[in-house]
Amino acid sequence: MPRRIIPRKVVFPPKFKSFMPLGDSKTKGFIELLYEEYEAIKLVDYDMLNHLEAGKIMGISRATFARIYEKARRKVASALVENKEIRSVFGNAFLNENFFRCNDCGAIFNMPSENENFNCPVCKSISIIKNK
């Protein structure tokens, strides 16, 4: 049995359905940017994390992260050069849509019932980032 692909944790999924190149009517084809690939680019090039830290956040090894990141960059580059549409596709992600992160203690937590207060359940900090 080939090893099952570990779902990659995607904390902030892309907010777009697709990016279209403007100014060239001959736009042909599209690339499918997987959620985990988007997350990889975001973590490294936007949040300025290194591969080890980024891999930890996504729940995968450094090596696996590097492979995903490399693929993501190739895809984006080919879309930019070849005037292709970039579509966001779910891929092998697992989303924690209802998960939040505390800015003070770094804990990630969910809100199973709606009437809970918005403090961090560990350190009661009110500095919370919503993962949406």
Binding site: C105, F109, P112, V122
Partner: peptide, 13 residues
């Protein structure tokens, strides 16, 4: 755990 609305808190340290 989700079914029983238990709050999950993840810490990485």
């Amino acid at each position: 755990l989700d079914q029983f609305k238990i709050r999950l808190i993840l810490m990485s340290d």
